[in-house]
Each structure stands twice: as C-alpha cells, then as structure tokens.
C-alpha cells in the first residue's frame, strides 16, 4: 500500500528548503518529453505534408481540426485563438492521466500540477475579461446589486480551486484504489485482474477529466469575456 508521492533525491536548495526529485516530477518530465518529441516530429514533417494525407498527417489534422471546431462551438466566435492553448492543455492532461498505464504515478494526482493548470486558467479568465470589457468587468462584480459583491468575489476565487481539486481528487482516488488492489493481490494475479480497473480509472476517467477540465476552462473564459 504505497500511494504517496515518494522523494528520491534532493535536486537543489531554495533558501533552506530542499527541492526534491519526486515521482510526480519524473512522470511530468517523461510526459513532457513524449509531447515535445511528438511536436518535433510533426514540425519536421510539416513541409512534406501533402494534399492527400498519409496516416500520420491524417491523424494530426483530425486532432487539430477537432480541437478548432470544439473551441469554436464552445467559446463562440472571436475566441479561435484559444484553440492551440487548449490543445496543449488537453494533450498534457490526457498523456499525464494515461501515464498511469505504464506504472508511473500520474502527475495530475499531485495538487501542484493541477494547481498550476488551474492558476493558468484563472489568469486567462481575468486578463481576457479585463481586456474585453474594460470597466464592465469591474461593474460585473457589483451586479445585480452592490450587496452581492462578496458572493461574486468568492465565486471567482472558488473557480480555480474547484478546477484544481476536481482533477486532483479524481486522479488521486484512482491511484489510491489501484494501489490498494495491487497490495491486496498476490504477485501472480497482478497481471490480469487490475486491467479492468486500469481501463476505468486511467482511460475512461482520465479522458473524461481531461475533457472536463478543458471544457470548463473554455466556458469560464468565454462567459467572463462575453460582451452583451
């Protein structure tokens, strides 16, 4: 029964606080490496892309086009520029969640990762809102009546917290149940039986949570920057 985020070595000292090389960090680096290699492979082949696509080109075009259409339908017109950003976020969360299949500890089962992702969304929500609405952004906090200001304010603060905890809690729940099952089974049975649980927690819940994080971020940004 071991589902804690293990410390492997001290990387460097930040003042007096040691910064550790954790399971999360290793898994994050592996996921980052895979995504960077994939992006580099696409970039190298980009000038060789043809009108009649091959298998690899077809796959990439489908992925990018799906994300563009999805952004357009969810966020409305004028927000197409968010498609590449959300494609990156979605790919990172999806690959992180799938990394549990290869015996890594999912980076998304760590509050630091999900908190960073949620802070990115939080900054985007408010920068976009201020740029689009100017003074209407401030006025929105005092509507429909100035007495509602604390409620509106707390509502804004709770958005990134709930985003971070939703992803974190779902993935950590999967990690805990998986490690309990692995600890319960004898060594010979660990090959086949947990596969069903992996299919549910890593593939189904992982895809669903990646999708939900992306679509909720999109909705929050779009509703905050909508000009009446």
């Amino acid at each position: 029964m071991d589902f804690s985020n293990r410390y492997h070595a001290v990387l460097f000292h930040l003042g007096d606080t040691p910064v550790y090389l954790t399971d999360t960090l290793i898994a994050t680096w592996i996921v980052m490496g895979i995504l960077i290699l994939l992006a580099a492979a696409v970039r190298v082949r980009l000038h060789r892309f043809q009108d009649v696509p091959g298998a690899f080109q077809n796959l990439m075009e489908i992925a990018v086009e799906t994300m563009e259409n999805f952004t357009k339908t969810t966020m409305g017109p004028g927000n197409e520029a968010f498609a590449p950003y959300f494609f990156g976020v979605f790919a990172f969360i999806l690959f992180s969640n799938y990394s549990g299949l290869f015996g890594l500890r999912q980076p998304t089962a760590d509050l630091a990762t999900t908190g960073a992702l949620a802070i990115m969304t939080f900054v985007l929500i408010h920068f976009r809102g201020i740029r689009k609405k100017k003074w209407g952004y401030v006025k929105e906090y005092f509507s429909p009546h100035p007495i509602m200001f604390p409620i509106n304010f707390v509502g804004e603060i709770s958005k990134p917290i709930s985003l971070a905890f939703r992803l974190f809690g779902n993935m950590l729940g999967g990690v805990i149940i998986m490690s309990l099952v692995y600890g319960m089974l004898p060594l010979a049975l660990r090959v086949i039986l947990p596969d069903i649980l992996h299919a549910y927690f890593d593939i189904f819940a992982g895809s669903l949570q990646a999708f939900i994080f992306t679509i909720l971020s999109m909705t929050f940004i779009a509703e905050k920057s909508a000009v009446e």
Binding site: S162, F165, R166, F168, G169, N170, L172, L208, I212, I215
Partner: peptide
C-alpha cells in the same frame, strides 16, 4: 451529452472535497 458532462462535473465537486478532507484526516 456535453451539457450533461459539465453539470455532472460541477456536481461532483462536493464529493471530491469530501474525499480530500478524508485524505487530510488520514494522511
């Protein structure tokens, strides 16, 4: 389907908070 999923994700937040508090109490 996508509307249902958004609503369910928001509704799920409460139980995730419960899970996090349980984990804090245990760990």
């Amino acid at each position: 389907l996508s509307t249902m999923l958004i609503g369910q994700a928001v509704a799920e937040t409460c139980s995730v908070y419960g899970l996090v508090i349980a984990l804090i109490l245990l760990m």
